[in-house]
């Protein structure tokens, strides 16, 4: 604006093009992309397309029944489960084990994670132990669990408990480490008690990490359900899948696996809801 007003610039400001009209071209657009766009129907469509192709393949004989049963057969097996009322017995038994095992595993895991996060002694003593025990497949310990906890509900709940305990410990202690220290300093400067700082600052601050740990541990709990129900389980989704496997009833096997998958989706959805509610303070 403070530049001298040569006639050229004056005309430019008046709106006339400085160059001949023919040499004007739009600025090439180089932005866009790199941003996920929400596409609501693509997922279900892909799913439906795969099911349809699979069914067509089975009906036409391209896919041998021995190799893979048709989705309709698996659905029929599921329908029989519902009709005979067995579904609820299996689901009931499994959900009870999952809920008890996972809740205990989560509670103990959060407690241990807090200890590790808060006390240097606990960190030095427990963290190596947790790191050593976490990667052990709990299935390998199953015979020991049977001796310790019996072939009843004990060993099944214990398998799920141990499976969900370790990821929770690791998520919680990492969450405590990541709590903004300036908030802790603020709490101290206002003379808050130690317990108040833990309850009102550390715990809510670690909550996002604890919840993402819960997501992982819930998936692990469902994965371990089949292993947990290997020993002495008459009912349960895992026991049903094992039975289908030993009978080579692949339609029932697929129905059972589908039930597990739906359970996983449902638990994921529930935790998503819990996250939205507990972490509503986040943008």
């Amino acid at each position: 604006m403070t530049l001298s007003d040569t006639p050229d610039r004056a005309s430019a400001r008046a709106g006339a093009p400085p160059q001949a009209e023919s040499r004007l071209q739009p600025v090439p657009f180089r932005g866009g992309g790199f941003r996920p766009v929400r596409m609501r129907f693509v997922g279900p469509l892909v799913f439906a397309a795969i099911l349809l192709l699979w069914e067509a393949g089975s009906r036409s004989g391209v896919i041998s029944n021995l190799v893979l049963p048709a989705p309709s057969e698996a659905f029929e097996a599921f329908r029989q489960l519902v009709e005979t009322g067995q579904l609820w017995r299996h689901l009931g038994a499994s959900l009870q084990r999952l809920v008890i095992g996972w809740t205990l595993g989560m509670s103990l895991g959060v407690a241990a994670g807090l200890m590790i996060g808060l006390f240097s002694l606990a960190r030095a003593g427990l963290m190596p132990l947790v790191s050593a025990l976490f990667p052990i497949p709990k299935i390998a310990l199953l015979p020991l669990f049977v001796i310790w906890f019996g072939i009843g509900e004990g060993s099944k709940v214990a398998t799920i408990l141990f499976g969900s305990f370790f990821p929770t410990v690791i998520a919680t202690s990492a969450g405590v480490d990541n709590v903004d220290r300036s908030l802790v300093r603020m709490g101290q400067s206002f003379g808050l008690s130690w317990w108040s700082i833990v309850r009102k600052i550390i715990l809510p601050g670690a909550m996002p990490a604890i919840l993402s740990g819960a997501r992982i541990s819930a998936s692990i709990a469902i994965i371990l359900l089949v292993a947990a129900e290997m020993i002495g389980a008459e009912y349960g989704v895992g026991a049903y899948i094992l039975m289908a496997g030993s009978l080579f009833a692949t339609d029932q096997l697929l129905a059972g696996v589908a039930i597990l998958s739906v359970m996983g989706l449902l638990v994921g959805w529930l935790i998503g809801r819990a996250e939205r509610w507990l972490l509503r303070w986040r943008s």
């Binding site: 015979p143 049977v146 001796i147 019996g150 072939i151 009843g152 290997m230 020993i231 002495g232 389980a233 008459e234 026991a239 094992l242 039975m243």
Partner: peptide
């Protein structure tokens, strides 16, 4: 009669010896 599927013969023997079945 309550059935206890234990997957392996060894597991059944263990359970019988310890009186769990």
């Amino acid at each position: 009669i309550t059935l206890r599927p234990l997957q392996k013969v060894g597991a059944v023997i263990g359970a019988l010896k310890t009186g769990q079945i």
